[in-house]
Simulated assay, not measured.
Amino acid sequence: MNSRRQKRLWSVLSIVILVAGAIGAMLYALQQNINLFYTPTQLVEGIGKDKIRPEIGQRLRIGGLVVEGSVQRDPESLLVRFDLVDTGPIVTVEYEGILPDLFREGQGIVAQGHLVNERLIRATEVLAKHDEEYMPAEVAKALMGIEHVPPSQQTSYGSEGSY
C-alpha cells in the first residue's frame, strides 16, 4: 500500500472512531436525563411481561389521583406529602414547594422527581389537571374506568370495595 492510501485510511479510521466516541458520550449523558412515565401500579408491580421496575434514585414522572384525606402539610415548612393511586397500590409523593392552585384531593396530577424507595417519590415538580376536561393522555389511559375508595371509607372485611 502506498503512503497516500495509508494516510487516507488512517484519517478515515480516526474520523470514524471520533464520531463513534462522540455518539457514545452523548447517549451516556442523555441516559441520565430520561424521565419515564409510570402509574402507581406500574411503579410497584413493574412494566411488561418481565415486570421491569425503576431503580432507586431514577428520575421519573408519575401520574394518578390524589387520595382523599392523604395530604399532609408540615406546619414549619413547605413540605407536603400525599398519596397517589390508580387501579391498585398507593404510592406516596413528597414535595417541598408551593403546589399549583388546582391541586386538591381526588384530582389527577403528574409529579416529576426521583424514586427514594419502592413506594416513595421525592418530587421536584407537581402539575395539576388544568380544568375538568383536560387530563394528560398517559393518566387518562391508565385511569380509564377506575373508581378508588379512600382508605377511610373501606370496609374491614376483605378486599371488597378497596382499590
Rank of each mutant, 00 (worst) to 15 (best):
E68R: 15
A140M: 12
D101W: 02
L27K: 12
L78A: 14
E138C: 03
S156M: 07
A128E: 03
L43Y: 09
I62P: 00
S70E: 06
P136E: 11
T41S: 08
E147F: 13
V71R: 02
V19H: 00
L84V: 03
Y163V: 05
G158Y: 09
Q42P: 01
T87H: 11
E132P: 01
M1C: 06
D83A: 15
M1Y: 12
R122I: 06
G24L: 03
I15M: 14
S70L: 05
S3K: 05
V149C: 04
E125D: 11
L65S: 14
L79R: 15
A29C: 00
I121E: 06
V93Q: 07
R104G: 11
R5P: 02
M26H: 03
V16P: 13
G63H: 09
G145W: 05
A142D: 11
Q6I: 13
Q154H: 03
Q42L: 03
S3G: 03
E133N: 13
T87L: 15
S14D: 04
A20S: 15
R53W: 00
F37R: 02
F103H: 04
A111C: 02
L9E: 10
G48I: 10
G97M: 06
L102I: 03
Q154L: 00
E147G: 04
H148W: 14
E118H: 04
M135L: 14
L127H: 08
A137E: 13
V71T: 15
V44D: 02
V85G: 00
R8K: 14
P136F: 06
P40S: 01
L120V: 15
